[in-house]
Design a protein around this nucleic acid. Structure first.
Lengths: 129, 129
DNA sequence: GACTACACTTACAAAATGGTAAGTACTAGA
DNA sequence: TCTAGTACTTACCATTTTGTAAGTGTAGTC
């Protein structure tokens, strides 16, 4: 098949059904390594940049800043700038982000309930490699 | 600080609290690009390798095989080999995997309900870059 | 006067992730 | 005989993601 035909096919595929199921759509929005975690924390309370950084623990400032920027642009979070010096900024979930966060509630609970098992699985996985 | 002190500190940090919240634990388990999608499909019905590949659409065989192997080893899925030639293999969710999958139900539903909005957001994001 | 904290940004490097194409061993169907 | 399909694996390379370290400007604290 020629290249331009392939391209056209791909385009028509993209413009009609962007996602095959709800999960794909959600993953597009919060599929990164940190976004779900950020959303989780911000849904519980408004947070400053440095508070978020401490809560998550091992994100670099670069990553946090990058992901926050995207999440604000995507309408999941709101950035509240107090315009002071030194700077004071808070992040809050929008209604949209909050709804997603709430739908994650059962997942979080499952994770908490099985935390020990998951820790054991993670150890076994590490030992495998 | 000397290196061996750092190492010891890291180890003690690791052995006590592996995860700070349920979400971190879940992400450890299904944090890859495809695992949630695989879990979603397999929770709905037993699936053969090629069926899964067709359902997801743009995974390569390599990735699918890799992720399936990990998910089986992690106890999320069960691999059922019919030991025929040509090969016939099916994947089924374990009770553990099924429970996680079920906790994802609200997330999927939210994704389906907001699919159009998310598609628009994705377009806007692409246009930004 | 040095230090810390705030919320970032930038350049560069490393690591993880992903894709492509080929190959395996065998069979059923055209 | 040729092709397609089954469920993968492997080697190689490209891309994407992530981390590290340093820097920015200001102000309050020791």
């Amino acid at each position: 098949m020629e290249r331009f035909v392939e391209t056209a096919l791909k385009k028509s595929e993209m413009s009609e059904p962007p996602f095959r199921c709800g999960m794909e759509a959600v993953l597009d929005l919060v599929g990164g390594k940190w976004k779900l975690l950020i959303l989780y924390h911000v849904c519980r309370q408004r947070l400053r940049f440095s508070e978020l950084r401490r809560l998550i623990g091992d994100v670099s400032e670069k990553m946090l800043s990058q992901q926050l920027k995207e999440m604000v642009a995507d309408g999941l979070l709101q950035r509240i700038d107090f315009k002071t010096v030194p700077p004071h900024v808070e992040y809050e979930a929008t209604a949209f982000g909050l709804a997603l966060g709430r739908s994650m509630q059962p997942v979080c609970e499952w994770g908490e309930q099985h935390m020990e098992a998951i820790a054991a699985i993670a150890e076994a996985r590490a030992a495998r490699q």
